[in-house]
Amino acid sequence: MAHAIETHGLTRRFDGRVAVEGLSLTIEPGTVFGFLGPNGAGKTTTVRMLAALIAPTDGDAIVAGHALGVDDTALRRSVGILTEQPGLYDRLSARQNLRYFARLYDLEPARVDAQVERYLHLLDLWDRRDEPVGTFSKGMRQKLAIARALLHEPTVVFLDEPTAALDPEAARTVRQFVKGLRAEGRTIFLTTHNLPEADELCDSIGIFQRKLLRMGSPGELRAGLFGAGTIVRVVGDAARYVPMARSLAFVRGVHAEGEALTMELDDPDARNPDLVDALKAAGARIRYVERLQHSLEDVYLRLVGGHK
């Protein structure tokens, strides 16, 4: 099966300044790809290139089956984009906003109203359909902008900070909606600063700062950077078991804090029984044994911080 997005050495310079450098990646259809990076990293420029809004200085890309720079109008017809700012017409109603864009996206006249109605229902905006958008809350505006990006049923959808500044309930609705889009087989290119959200939604993640620093599934990124590990919570001061733990051949690193003994292991699934036996033999009374789980934030900060 062809990739949903495929780029080779995609580069963009602005007056000699490199905004995006040699971006090469592939994203599979029906997956959510998280594009993470600090402000000014070049994420918006990348999205604009992939949505055929601006041209790359170098490199090439295929998005939704269309090569960039060949038939950009067809490419734009195949992708949807939620821009950083919702950019809605405040005086027009929700329905008028969507009808305008449905027509710009070349929907057949007979389908325009049906699609508008479908997405207003899906995003729970139908009851407010004829009210001016200027009266909408931030969450409603964001949902309307998402509806606008999907009216023409694109196979690839770019979402730039879809839950930024939303209250928890609205953010959860949007996240559920993104999961629904993936279930329909659409490819989502998600730009976000919300790392737990990326962890929850994304099948693969690219950490980006002018160039792609690392790419993989959230689990692969964690394992690649931090290895695997186990936390054992014991009764009393865990520090007294550090020398014993260091003596075990399969333990690569040990850190004690209060009652928690954190250890990096080669293969926790296979070694945890031996580890527990050794600790018990050393007199430890064990409360809990947990998997050492680094957050995506740890991964992000190590990569982005290390790159600065």
Binding site: A51, L53, T73, A74, R76, R77, V79, I81, T83, Q85, P86, G87, L88, Y89, D90, F101, L104, Y105, D106, A145, R148
Partner: peptide, 14 residues
Amino acid sequence: RERTLEPILATPIE
């Protein structure tokens, strides 16, 4: 000013 140009430019309009 209202930032509505980019969503329009993202459509297939010339």
